[in-house]
Design a binder for these strands. Structure first.
Lengths: 152, 152
DNA sequence: CTAAGTGCAAATAATTTGCAACATG
DNA sequence: CATGTTGCAAATTATTTGCACTTAG
């Protein structure tokens, strides 16, 4: 599925699901709504579960995890790993990297191109192709860098 | 503790521990031995436990985790996060980054300087100071890149 | 109807913690 | 002998799985 033609509309995604033999259920609709509503926010699975429950109070956590896996298989969402052990999900789109602040947890998206040079160098010297989009890079955002100077 | 003066000798480390009010025990000696013997290998906590048990068969896993934490506090070892959820430990030394292959898990160390340019660009554009040494960068090593072309 | 989807509870995996028994300095 | 350490078992966190029961199409 090419990134540019990923639908960003709940009904369209449900149609895609049906087209693949899947079924449109209330939990699926709610989960898709939550992710699309978050826009470019990177929601942790737990947060998605919490939000889905505002619409479908009794969804099981396993159901939401299974829905997230289906949506990822379908190519409409992606996940990455933040600092801690948790996964974050967001609508699939242009490949990009993430910077996560170790102190406040804020996530900043950076375009893929920023890594081109590094990727080229690493490929040339180590024969290794990096894919930095699946795991966030850690560090400190400007606010926390300043704050850390006084309270580390 | 400056990286350059970190002892790479079990007895010296035990002395450091004692100097800080700590005690030298068989489990501690064995754990330090295992880590120093591994050289620049990056051992997962579980692997360290396994190896320590060849010397001290009945150490509890919690003991090894506590020892690893003490040694890290002492500044003689560091840990980083690999692809999965596991931590890897190695003797403290020059700051460097890690490339981990998503397919075979091989870890390659790369000098800190390779990231200088990226760090400068990211700092300039996003006011974010990256510290890529605590989480490994993922990708594919040359062997797996070739292999993946046929068996993804 | 019937395969896809769901709830529930138990299973993982990697760590962490409380606490009483130990053992080092 | 006092305090740092340890073993054990239970708690955590984030996710996964087995299975019988629902339900969308």
């Amino acid at each position: 599925v090419a990134a540019s033609q990923v639908p960003r509309d709940t009904d369209a995604i449900l149609d895609l699901l049906r087209a693949g033999g899947g079924r449109a259920t209330a939990s699926r609709r709610a989960t898709i709504d939550v992710i699309l509503a978050a826009g470019d926010e990177h929601l942790a699975a737990g947060e998605i579960l919490r939000r889905v429950r505002t619409t479908v109070p009794d969804v099981a956590e396993s159901t939401v995890y299974r829905i997230l896996a289906s949506l990822e298989d379908l190519g409409v969402i992606s996940h990455l790993h933040l600092a801690n052990g948790a996964s974050a999900y967001h609508p699939a789109g242009a490949r990009h990297q993430h910077l996560v602040c170790r102190r406040c947890g804020a996530v900043t998206d950076v375009p893929d191109t920023v890594f081109d040079e590094l990727a080229t160098v690493i490929d040339a010297f180590y024969g290794f192709s990096i894919d930095a989009s699946h795991v966030a890079l850690q560090g400190h955002c400007s606010a926390c860098r300043t704050a850390a100077a006084t309270t580390p």
